[in-house]
């Protein structure tokens, strides 16, 4: 058992950024988790090998299957076969929608320990140590992963993406396992998300509101946004409840924004929300909970009742 197997994530012919972020996390963990092999599974992945040649990658494993798009069944079978052959000390996925369909089942089938949404990773005297949120991110746990070849999923956006590599890592073709004809799951089509008129991604100043507004009507905040010269954005629960359209949703399953000012009112800062706004230039958060995880990414924080503060906000200068 040695080294790390990184499961590369790709979609519609592009390597997803979380893959390079995982390499940064591993480089930070040092030599103890090296060497790093990166695994690409799917139809046509050989064409993605150059994209996967990321600093820190020692070898690129290419597993061509007949599945043109992700399906949990074929991906899981292929990864299980590669784990059996390569015997890595650690297996790393991104904490993504694809991984959520695969990593827990693999851990269960292979009898491996699993931990998900990892925000820090290191080796301490031969022990693999990770950190992850608990109680909705209001606390963090430092955990040691016992057993052979545990599986971790690493939080997207937590680490910078490693840049392009000058070195050319070795390529190796590995065998897919499991016959495609018997697959119980098949891809049908992709449906694009909301194609609304509003584009919150180009706004300089976003007023983002979350469930903390309580029973109040969202119109009140649409008006406020208008008054102070901001564009209204929301967290997911306001979309789920039908108060706002998906076009205004910030986060993993919504839009990624990078405004100059992000004023967050009554948003707790779930990882899926942070994924969409953590790179804003100036984040101001108002929340009555001093432990709200949004304060972990905000530049300025206010612990207090948002309702008492909103009335005093004034128009931003042009």
């Amino acid at each position: 058992m040695a080294g790390t197997l990184v499961i590369a994530e790709h979609r519609r012919g592009e390597l997803r950024q979380v893959t390079a972020e995982m390499l940064t996390a591993l480089r930070g963990a040092g030599e103890a988790l090296a060497p790093t092999k990166i695994l690409l599974v799917g139809a046509g992945v050989t064409a993605l090998a150059d994209q996967a040649d990321i600093p820190g990658v020692d070898e690129i494993l290419l597993c061509e299957t007949s599945a043109e798009h992700f399906d949990p069944w074929s991906v899981e079978n292929a990864i299980a076969a590669v784990i059996a052959a390569e015997q890595p000390r650690l297996i790393a996925f991104g904490h993504t929608v694809d991984a959520m369909s695969v990593a827990p089942a693999l851990a269960a089938k292979l009898g491996r320990e699993l931990t998900t949404d990892v925000t820090a990773l290191r080796d301490e005297d031969g022990a693999i140590v990770v950190e992850r949120p608990i109680y909705g991110g209001r606390l963090f746990a430092e955990l040691e992963l016992p057993g052979e070849g545990p599986i971790v999923t690493i939080r997207p956006g937590q680490f910078d993406a490693a840049g392009a590599s000058a070195a050319r890592a070795g390529r190796r073709v590995v065998d897919p396992q499991g016959a495609a004809e018997s697959s119980p799951i098949c891809h049908v089509e992709f449906l694009e998300g909301d194609t609304d008129q509003i584009d919150i991604t180009t706004a300089d100043f976003l007023l983002a509101v979350g469930r903390g507004i309580g029973d109040e009507d969202l119109d009140r905040y649409a008006d406020l946004a208008g008054e102070i010269g901001a564009t209204l954005a929301v967290s997911r629960p306001l979309v789920d409840s039908g108060q706002a359209t998906g076009a205004r949703q910030v986060g993993q399953s919504g839009k990624t924004v990078k405004p100059r000012v992000y004023l967050a009112l009554g948003i707790s800062g779930a990882p899926q929300h942070l994924a969409g706004m953590r790179d804003a230039d100036c984040i101001i958060a108002v929340n009555q909970d001093p432990d709200a995880p949004i304060f972990g990414v905000a530049h300025y924080g206010v612990v207090g009742d948002l309702h008492e503060i909103v009335d005093e906000l004034v128009p931003a200068p042009d």
């Binding site: 320990e113 963090f140 995880p293 304060f295 612990v303």
Partner: peptide, 28 residues
């Protein structure tokens, strides 16, 4: 397995990056 072993927990506020603004609603 027996699951990951807990070594310690810590509160986010010990590490939070935000500069906290204090005062009454108007000042804030």
């Amino acid at each position: 397995g027996s699951g990951p072993r807990l070594r310690q927990i810590y509160e986010l506020k010990d590490r939070a990056s935000a500069e906290m603004i204090r005062g009454g609603p108007r000042e804030v």
